[in-house]
Design a protein around this nucleic acid. Structure first.
Length: 285
DNA sequence: GGCCAGGTCCAAT
DNA sequence: ATTGGACATGGC
């Protein structure tokens, strides 16, 4: 009844903690995961994944266990500058999230932070989502576009200035906008996503990378900008398009993984950004 | 308390 | 085409 599946080069915990997905909780050595309308539980033992509440196919798809991380790592290792990030992110995979859920979360992500995004997403689900259960644990799925609360309610739930964006985006999603995306090439898909209010280049790229498996996109946020400028542009300010062009040319279809590793690594304190020189007891650090 | 936060929108160069 | 400020809310 509980599927076991092989998961070579996979780190469940690190993947969930890498900031791409917000609907999970830890329960001892297991994780409760809400993906779309499904609640399932996963526990990793070495290269084996034990799952309750979802079939193998669903889990394999969600965790992108079909991605060949050996190829990803080998390709990215050509860049010495990526070694620390690669070492820190072994087994981190890009997920295939529910497109609407991912869209909503990243509309909420603008000028915010992970704990707050997760909190607001959770609040919306508690208010408007369908109850889902798995054995003794229970949760609420994130509401489908048509069931999203209105602007006023979203504000009360902590969406802030993003509330009207989210409401209008939900309307567009309910009209089928997100179903078109899969059929389009990446540039057209990005343009189409940006029709939704609150979705600019960065958010669109996150959606493409985290929900549609477009591994060639390279979302640039403040962390990535900082780390890329430091690693590859000698600390000189450059426009985002220069960073994108660089990533695209350098990493191609691996750019998405490069981004995720750089993001997770830098955010977990990896780069050891030189702190402002501190003067301590007359000694300079 | 002011500043910044997984940006985007809009108006003014 | 590029640049600057506003936008809610919360944490430090």
């Amino acid at each position: 009844m509980n599927p076991l599946l092989a998961c070579p080069r996979f780190d469940l915990e690190a993947t969930l903690e890498s900031g791409q997905f917000f609907r999970w909780t830890r329960d001892g050595d297991a994780f409760d995961i809400l993906r779309g309308l499904r609640l399932f539980r996963a526990r990793q033992r070495g290269a084996t994944l034990e799952v309750q509440g979802a079939d193998r196919w669903f889990v394999r798809e969600f965790f992108s266990l079909d991605h060949d991380l050996a190829v990803v790592e080998k390709g990215l290792r050509r860049d010495r500058s990526l070694w620390p990030a690669l070492d820190a992110c072994a087994g981190v995979r890009l997920l295939r999230q529910d497109p609407w859920e991912c869209t909503a979360a990243f509309i909420l992500s603008t000028a915010s932070n992970i704990p707050r995004i997760a909190r607001t997403v959770e609040a919306i689900a508690r208010t408007a989502g369908r109850p889902v259960t798995l054995g003794s644990s229970a949760g609420q799925a994130f509401p489908r576009p048509a069931a999203m609360p209105g602007e006023t309610a979203l504000r009360k739930l902590g969406a802030g200035f993003r509330a009207p964006y989210l409401e209008r985006a939900a309307r567009l999603a309910a009209g089928g906008l997100l179903e078109e995306i899969a059929e389009l090439d990446t540039d057209a898909a990005r343009d189409t996503l940006q029709v939704m209010p609150g979705v600019g280049v960065k958010v669109a790229d996150c959606i493409l990378l985290f929900a549609y498996g477009r591994l060639d996109v390279f979302p640039i946020d403040t962390w990535i900008r900082k780390v890329m400028i430091r690693l590859f542009f000698r600390g000189r300010r450059v426009p985002d398009r220069a960073i994108r062009a660089f990533a695209q040319e350098r990493w191609g279809d691996l750019a998405g993984y490069a981004q995720q590793y750089l993001y997770h690594w830098s955010r977990s304190g990896g780069l050891a950004f030189p702190r402002r020189p501190r003067v301590v007891a007359g000694n300079r650090e």
